[in-house]
Simulated assay, not measured.
Amino acid sequence: MATTLIALRRKMDSAGDLKSVVSTMKASAASAIGQYERSVSALADYAHTVELGLGVCLRSAEQRSAQSLALPPPRVNTRMRAVVFGSDQGLVGRFNEVAVEHAVAALAQNESRVWAVGERTHARLIDAGIVPEGCFPVPGSVELIPRLVGDILQEVQVPNAAAEDEGPIAIHDTALTLFYNRPNAAGYTPVSQRLLPLDARWQRGLVNQPWPTAQIPEVLDVSSLTLRAFIREHLFVSLFRASAESLASENASRLAAMQRADRNIGELLQDLHARFHRLRQAGIDEELFDVISGFDALQDTHTTR
């Protein structure tokens, strides 16, 4: 009996310690979600500004018949490049599986070079039959996302839109697609974004985008330098947003997993407490029966005398 009570007590202590760890991870995930969601919200305004600038540059190029961003169709033999965003750590439910399954389904008909963001995603891609070209570590904070963006642009070998000898047309021979999870009311959903090449429909949408004020802007630099700068910012913003949204989704998935674990541990603790009290009460009852039986035996002895 004592051994069983001690074992139950140890299980209850272990479950309590685990519940404390889960509660800490819940708080950490909830806090992280906030900072990534705020960064995505702030970035939306900046992305809109970049799009307005691009539209002005394209409109000015058309009006002045200067070098425009008229995009030729992508080369037939252009090999697609893809970046799949995931996590380095576990306890995120099916977060990595969902992103990888979405990417594998989209890349099934194309010969692609794939890079992974996160060791877990890298392993899932290998299990799915895709050997990634490389693996980038997942940034641990918003401040580290720009470093990841720079590493991706360098490793994936996207032509530098700011280079004088390449010009904006060079990047249209590059096909780059991003696969990641985007947060929503239900948690997250897998999405894909074709980042390159920049197509004519995208250009036309920017050109037709109305300016928000009555003051019509003018591009002072007639050359393509301003245009290249805006394209560079478009690439940066798109990659930054994809990484921030993936991190927000990862922490949302971890928070949901920790909430399920917290609920399961709570139910386990209730069961352990109930078993402990029943077993302890059974032990007390047994001891009382022994005392009563002994008292009755003594009474019988005195009566016989």
Rank of each mutant, 00 (worst) to 15 (best):
A103V: 03
A42N: 14
V22W: 05
L54Y: 03
G90C: 07
K19G: 06
E51T: 08
L58N: 03
S20C: 11
S23N: 12
E51N: 15
D45C: 07
Q63Y: 08
A44R: 15
G93V: 08
A27M: 10
A82D: 01
H102G: 08
G34F: 11
G93N: 05
L54S: 10
V84S: 04
D45S: 13
K26N: 04
G53C: 10
K19D: 00
Q35E: 11
G86W: 00
L18N: 03
S68N: 10
F85Y: 03
G86D: 00
F85Q: 00
G16M: 10
L69K: 04
A103L: 13
A61K: 03
V98Y: 09
A66K: 06
E101I: 02
E51W: 15
G16L: 08
A15P: 00
A44Q: 09
S68I: 05
A47K: 14
E62C: 04
V92A: 13
M80E: 10
M25L: 10
M25Y: 04
A70T: 06
A61N: 02
V22H: 10
V92L: 13
S20M: 14
S41P: 03
P73Y: 15
G90F: 13
E101T: 11
F85P: 00
C57T: 05
V22N: 04
A30Q: 06
E51Y: 14
A32G: 04
A61Y: 02
A47Y: 13
E101C: 11
S39G: 09
L18F: 09
N96Y: 07
Y46F: 14
V100G: 08
G34E: 06
L52P: 01
E62F: 09
A82E: 01
T78D: 10
E97N: 10
A99T: 01
G55H: 02
A66T: 04
E37P: 04
A30N: 03
Q89W: 05
C57N: 06
S68T: 09
S68A: 07
G86Y: 00
P72M: 02
V50M: 11
A32F: 10
R59F: 07
I33S: 04
R94K: 15
S68G: 11
R81Y: 13
M80N: 06
S65Y: 09
R38V: 07
L18S: 11
L71N: 05
A27S: 11
Y36W: 01
E97S: 14
S31H: 10
R75D: 13
E37V: 14
A29R: 01
H102C: 13
A15I: 00
H48I: 12
V50G: 13
